[in-house]
Design a protein around this nucleic acid. Structure first.
Lengths: 355, 355
DNA sequence: TCCGCTTGCAAATACGTTTTAGCAGATTTT
DNA sequence: AAAATCTGCTAAAACGTATTTGCAAGCGGA
């Protein structure tokens, strides 16, 4: 039960002041004209006793916590888990720590989380914004705290963000289904009006309009209840037997959709062509493999962390924050589930780049 | 760019001392004989200006951060993601925040993470321990910081832990396969010697020994390279054509295994019966659905958080920590992949409780 | 009237750092 | 020889809160 060593213990033992120790430890020995001899002695003894500064005290004094708050919709969603993991890795290497939290797309919970991060004085934010948090974000931005949104953005707010061109993905998917000879394509999405979901819908709608084809759109109510969602989709499919293909606007809807299709004993792609947004183990390994619109997770993570770390660099007082908006292209990964004849012509899986 | 309001601002405005404000805010008004009138005034004004105490200063002063460090193997693994999510939810409600981190089962990274948590003065730890961190854990325990391990434990260390009876799960699975008429059962596991992995192997071995049957065990080297692991499993299956069933010791091996089996164009369960540890969307929806040994994630999370919060309660000085060891039973969820005749007799999916 | 007890609050210290201003002596410049 | 500059370090003041101790006033009892 011995006490932690403090900077004052170090100072006392070496018969120097705490200021000296602190300056050496923070690499400011040179500019503060601490002699190399003393600096060496300090470093040696610090290593010897394994002294680690108290980060709380440090943060309180400097106002910097070296912590980034990461607010995603649902950390157990493989898409977010992957992006979060990549971001964490990068940030860790550059001395930043990440605190994750899941919002479940709940406005109130998101606000609470942001408020908690504020209290903990995170140095920066990475946020997948839920609806209705414009005010909270405005507060953060006003305080000049570096912030990057991803996956979607808030149209009325000028912020950094990294998103994927959802319309390009779904229009490529729709076009691909038409090329394969499917003629009556349905689109299953959520009832949320988040920017990226609306875009995905537009991509689908645009292509069908161009071909003067009928649109069949189902909006599944957001719910934590998988069974309810599956039942909802099942009913939709039954009520729309004329449809010969479905595009799901996000990974979990795709998974629910597969379960629904499986229960209805409809065979893919013979009875129903299928494409889902987001890649996933399940889609890759399902029999038949499911064609997906894959988001470039590595590049999303890379851009997010690059923008954030750039802003975290100590800047001149008046350097304005230059907001960056990045729009990345998804890739259509064609697998059996969207092929009329059931086999991929050339390669077992070819990728189309969109955009 | 206005400054945050401080407790001193509140005090000044109300013409009371900061002590008074602090006491009221921390619910110690009564015991410090602050009059109700003053307490009301304080609360009213605090609400009005939306004052939030600086948690850093608070923590520095009290030594409590209200933060729990959660160290898992891989947050993108659905099993850990689920448990983490459940734990987070519970902790949040009781005023604690969670910091997640992934170790990738890397001893060095685990040590770094624990060290980082120490620096940040987390109030408690929840750890999925990698090998070789006994010393670091001992340090934590010596300092009486509440800690709970889960998924596995370190045999030489007396700690709280919550684990699942791995042997019960695999022996039930093995027995089930034998009952179904499979005679040559292989076991695919990792090359790690973590307690829970060894137990899972033992459960399998024990049942086969009882029946005097040959054991066929494959240890797949731990790697980040999925392709390599899949190739490894593919080779194993090809080299052991006599096997008519396989048990995978963990979810990602099961997924790799399915990919291998699919590439070899072996049909399940006709050519090969399959059971995997851990449930997963993929296993539930795969065609045929995969029988799994499901871990009781809700109960794991519940026990972990209960034990930890119990220990976090302010205790009398000398109350010794009573270490709790909880062993939960997994459930065998029988699906088509382990049934000789290809159909489940009664219900489409029945559960056996083990233990 | 004096003493002790209660009530209601404030002063002051501590938590463990970082950082600025400045001091004393040595060295150089004028 | 005095003045200016440089060198190497330290004293002390923050950062924003919690908490212990104590002080003054009021009150009842003797």
């Amino acid at each position: 039960m011995k006490k932690r060593t403090l900077i004052s213990d170090i100072a006392k033992h070496l018969k120097v002041s705490t200021a000296t120790v602190s300056l050496v430890l923070n690499g400011k020995a040179k500019q503060s004209r601490i002699s190399d001899a003393v600096a060496q002695r300090v470093r040696a003894y610090v290593d010897e006793v394994g002294y680690k500064p108290n980060q709380l005290a440090k943060s309180l004094r400097t106002g910097k916590t070296q912590v980034i708050g990461l607010v995603v919709e649902d950390i157990s969603n493989p898409f977010f888990a992957m992006v979060a993991w990549l971001i964490e890795k990068q940030a860790f290497e550059r001395g930043y720590r990440i605190i994750y939290c899941s919002t479940d797309n709940n406005t109130e919970k998101t606000k609470e989380l942001i408020s908690m991060f504020q209290e903990r004085h995170v140095d920066g934010y990475i946020i997948v914004p839920a609806k209705g948090i414009e005010e909270d974000l405005r507060t953060i931005l006003r305080e000049q705290i570096p912030t990057v949104l991803f996956d979607r953005f808030l149209p009325e707010l000028l912020t950094n963000y990294v998103v994927v061109d959802g319309a390009a993905g779904t229009s490529a998917a729709t076009q691909h289904l038409l090329d394969e000879g499917f003629t009556n394509i349905a689109f299953v999405t959520t009832d949320s009006t988040q920017t990226q979901m609306e875009e995905r819908l537009h991509g689908y709608a645009r292509v069908l309009e161009e071909h003067s084809l009928l649109q069949t759109v189902k909006r599944v109510a957001e719910t934590k209840d998988a069974a309810k969602a599956i039942a909802d989709i099942t009913a939709f499919i039954q009520a729309n037997r004329q449809c010969d293909a479905i595009i799901f606007s996000t990974n979990y809807l795709g998974i629910y959709g597969l379960e629904a299709i499986s229960r209805l004993e409809l065979s893919i792609p013979t009875a129903l062509g299928v494409i889902s947004y987001d890649d996933h183990d399940l889609f890759r390994l399902y029999e038949p493999a499911i064609t997906v619109i894959a988001q470039p997770v590595e590049r999303i993570a890379q851009h997010v962390i690059d923008i954030l770390l750039e802003e975290l660099k100590p800047r001149g007082k008046v350097t304005p924050l230059s907001m960056q908006q990045v729009v990345l292209s998804p890739a259509l990964v064609v697998r059996k589930s969207s092929l009329r004849n059931g086999t991929v012509s050339a390669a077992p899986s070819k990728k189309y780049r969109t955009g």
